[in-house]
């Protein structure tokens, strides 16, 4: 029973990260109708920027996090402008390939600057808490709480603020939004900034728990895709629910069946879902 609860807790923690990363991805998908294949790599860059700010300038955890969010929001805008915007009216495969170009640059860039080896960010909250027979590190608990706050804030932003509703309008009907006078380019930039900024926050929160390495982005990016597909491309609730589902599948599958194959469960779940419902759990019918 204790082990079970512990696995659930780990699943929720993993799921919180996944949910945030997938949320950003799904927002971008809603706007551009293409998956941002470099998303995981931008997440990775976010972790490195925090690492850099802490080790090089001796900043504390939270200031480093804010710097990282800011830098990555900017990076997102740049990526959208250079990599995606020129290809907007081309076949999807083209943007996809230029995204591969971008992620190669990001990953190699990080290797060139910080080396291929893994690094560790000092844990700001190493203490533990005992609850219901589970041992939780404070950092993990904090990660869950921050993630939930971010998800709620993002929801409020999209539903209640003018730029947020503009994002939704563009996602639902690009031409219509243009006719209403919405500047689609600006909305694309904004969406990218939010998406990569939140990814940077998640990456920084997770970094003290796991190590950071140049390769961490690729796997996480792929998982984010799985989630976004699990939930239905472009669906916000789908991304959140999908994130937690995947976190739980991994934690339970890894804990009870085989740790070596924990990623296989995740990818297997995706193939299964696609086989049963090709448009995802929350996907909409397309004509």
């Amino acid at each position: 029973m204790d082990l079970f609860l512990q696995q659930i807790f780990n699943g929720v923690m993993l799921g919180s990260t996944y949910a945030i990363v997938a949320l950003g991805l799904t927002l971008v998908f809603g706007i551009l109708h293409i998956p941002n294949f470099a998303h995981g790599h931008l997440y990775m860059l976010g972790a490195y920027v925090s690492f850099f700010a802490m080790t090089r300038y001796g900043l504390g955890f939270w200031p480093a996090l804010f710097i990282s969010v800011f830098v990555l929001a900017l990076a997102g805008v740049v990526v959208e402008f250079l990599v995606y915007r020129p290809l907007r009216d081309q076949p999807h495969i083209n943007s996809f390939i230029s995204a591969i170009g971008a992620l190669i640059i990001l990953e190699t860039g990080v290797v060139v600057i910080w080396g291929p080896q893994a690094h560790r960010i000092p844990n700001p909250y190493p203490g533990t808490i005992e609850l219901l027979g589970m041992t939780m590190t404070q950092q993990r608990l904090l990660l869950i709480i921050v993630a939930i706050i971010m998800i709620v804030l993002l929801q409020i932003f999209i539903k209640k603020t003018t730029p947020g509703t503009a994002i939704e309008a563009v996602a639902q009907n690009r031409e219509g939004a243009m006719l209403m006078g919405i500047n689609v380019n600006r909305i694309s930039s904004l969406t990218f900034a939010i998406s990569t900024g939140t990814a940077a926050a998640a990456a920084t929160m997770v970094a003290p728990i796991f190590m950071i390495s140049p390769a961490m982005g690729a796997l996480l990016g792929m998982k984010a895709f799985i989630i976004v597909i699990l939930g239905g491309l472009g669906s916000i609730p789908g991304a959140i629910v999908g994130g937690y589902i995947l976190g739980l599948i991994e934690a339970l599958g890894g804990g009870y069946i085989s740790a070596d194959y924990k990623d296989v469960f995740a990818f297997g779940a995706l193939l299964l879902i696609l086989a049963i419902k090709p448009t995802g759990l929350f996907g909409r019918e397309v004509a």
């Binding site: 495969i93 491309l233 990818f267 995706l270 193939l271 299964l272 696609l274 086989a275």
Partner: peptide, 22 residues
Amino acid sequence: GLPTLRTRGSYFAIATLCFGVI
């Protein structure tokens, strides 16, 4: 292909990406 080729565009790319990792 049976499950993944029913889908269009991005889905197939992502699904095959996953399969490659598996």
